[in-house]
Design a protein around this nucleic acid. Structure first.
Lengths: 237, 237
DNA sequence: CGGCGTATTGACCACCCTCAACTGACGTGG
DNA sequence: CCACGTCAGTTGAGGGTGGTCAATACGCCG
């Protein structure tokens, strides 16, 4: 208490989109931005729904999912800390947005953000480059979904998580490096385009191959990063 | 002869990104833009290669493909007339770019385009909105790759082509509506994440179901658009 | 007509899906 | 303290979709 929440002490400030803002704009942002909290599993925005605000993800993991008329799900993207949440210039969200873990957001009104983008070329540039990266990431994932085997898919996911969720303790991470999965087996399956049983079996195979250990259902220890990358089918995907 | 190629008579001017440019900028563009031609199958930019120019696609179809170390291919995007070709703000192309049909491009130097985006907020806005649409399209395709059956994939592709390649002759297109496929069977397979033989068989099934006819290998006549959409698994993907 | 590349068709099989039973962790209540 | 229910994950058995390999048909061109 006492310390007002402020951009100055924001944990993701350096990596988030607002990093480009000038002090004057930042002061204003500081006054009008507000927080939202969600528990794991809660819906944030439904598909086809209009979202009246945009946000930067402060902590937790958010999943973007699409659902077919008959109920088949596909996770089409994950958001991590410092990522932007929202779809400007479109009336309704093209997918549903859901908290995969407990989530903390830093939000601004839709209209404010759109105005800010008009007045701040640097912000727009930031947003553009992020969006271009999103396209690249989505296309990378298309290779995984369309061309990789179940084992390669599982290995690729663990690899991605290991690279994202850096422990941050220096150049040479601990061996075996532990990865906390923000996804349940069901969510892993929805992300990789396979069934949950297949996930279980492939994790078993990776364990038998000696490249990972599974101390608990949500924890994976990578024993052989090189071998894992090889089983993932090469990173040129 | 006589008529100098000019933006004023450009067939895709209204839909292309340069539509936002003011007359002064357009005059300059008119002087320095130049054309490139490619035959079907030719490489335009190799993966990992630096592209010294960007372009608007005047005619033809361009495919963006990714290749795994062992040679597996996945088409991760198609470009049609008026689409933008290039990846600003990145040193090397994240995929290889190839002509699917004969292709005509209207090109400008990379440095010129990047400068133009700095000076023209409207152009940058255009580009941003296009890129956001690319993300949405890629994510739609992720649903197809991860969740649809082979039959749904085939139906979805034909449906997409039917909607893209409008004959332009009014509200009620001819019945049966003919679609000229810009892709070979191999390319269809690489786009849908299946084998070429599967494409053949699924087209056969759609023919037996009475929703399409195949007058020639590259021509598909849609007899029952509604039925095709149903077999495609619903458009909420 | 022969040759070549593309597409189709057939036979077989493997990978992954489906359905089902089982295990383990956790929480509640008797 | 243990019985019981619940939920997530694992494991097993069997089957279907789509992959693999091979032969055949078709279209185009010299």
């Amino acid at each position: 208490m006492g310390i007002r929440r402020s951009c100055a002490v924001c944990a993701v400030r350096a990596e988030a989109m607002c990093a480009t803002l000038q002090s004057e704009q930042l002061n204003r942002l500081n006054r009008i931005a507000y927080r939202r909290h969600y528990n794991a599993g809660q819906f944030i925005v439904g598909a086809g729904q209009r979202q009246e605000w945009f946000a930067t993800l402060l902590s937790g993991v958010v999943k973007l999912t699409k659902t077919m008329p008959d109920g088949r799900h596909q996770i089409v993207g994950l958001l991590f800390a410092s990522d932007f949440l929202g779809r400007p210039f479109l009336e309704s969200s093209p997918y549903s947005v859901e908290a995969a873990t407990a989530v903390e957001l830093c939000c601004v009104e839709r209209s404010y953000f759109e105005e800010l983008m008009l007045n701040s070329p640097a912000l727009k540039q930031q947003f553009l480059e992020r969006t271009l990266n999103d396209v690249d990431a989505a296309r990378d994932w298309m290779v995984l979904l369309g061309r990789k085997t179940a084992e390669e898919k599982a290995a690729s996911l663990i690899l991605m998580m290991a690279r994202r969720g850096r422990t941050g303790n220096g150049e040479h991470p601990a061996h075996p490096m532990e990865v906390e999965l923000p996804l349940s087996r069901t969510e892993m399956a929805e992300y990789l385009g396979v069934r949950i049983e297949t996930i279980s079996r492939q994790l078993g195979r990776l364990r038998e191959a000696g490249v990972i250990e599974t101390p608990s259902a949500r924890t994976i220890a990578v024993r052989d990063m090189r071998g894992l990358a090889r089983l993932a089918g090469g990173d040129a995907a």
